[in-house]
Amino acid sequence: MMVMTQENLTSKERFDKIFEVEFLPQIDALYTFAYHLTYNEDDANDLVQETYLKAYRFIEKYIEGTNAKAWLFKILKNAFINQYRKKSKAPTKVDYEEIINFHDEENDTNYSTHTDLREEMFQSMMGDEVTNAINALPVDFRVVILLCDIEGFTYEEISKIIDVPIGTVRSRLHRARNMLKGQLKTYAESLGFKDKRSKD
């Protein structure tokens, strides 16, 4: 059995305080980032939870009062990339729990209403061309757009979060925005945004 010494207790209290004061206030931003990376609430929840558990496990490596937000974003981005790589290598699997839940729901009288609602939500989500266009960006490009345009990180902060030189951040942003422009041109015009850009 581990005996909690005064020293241990003090550092645990200090870590708990850092967690409460510096880490937890970032949860909205982390969840928004996770959601825009995965476009799935369950996956976003898992990513955020994994991020916080890892952050707490390695909290002694964090220097109190520094950029907690960037530190947490880096952990989340790495967790996402690891999952993303695993998923893209793994063959398609059917989740056992999903099958069990499916059969349970099939006996539920509310099942048809439930699927109609999900279908409606799905259609509404698919209707959002911007979401589709961002989702279609290669993951490295999607990450920089989200970090810059939603979270307002500086190029330097982004370069630390994703471990690439600032020049690479700059060129990825430039290319990502050009890709988005290409994909969204028609959609934006249909909403009244006009592309009057002239290169002459």
């Binding site: 909205d28 989200l146 945004f193």
Partner: peptide
């Protein structure tokens, strides 16, 4: 305006 258009579509979400 392109930047604002994109930002307006990237909604913040609450855990």
């Amino acid at each position: 305006s392109f930047r604002e258009f994109i930002k307006s579509k990237l909604h913040r979400r609450k855990p």
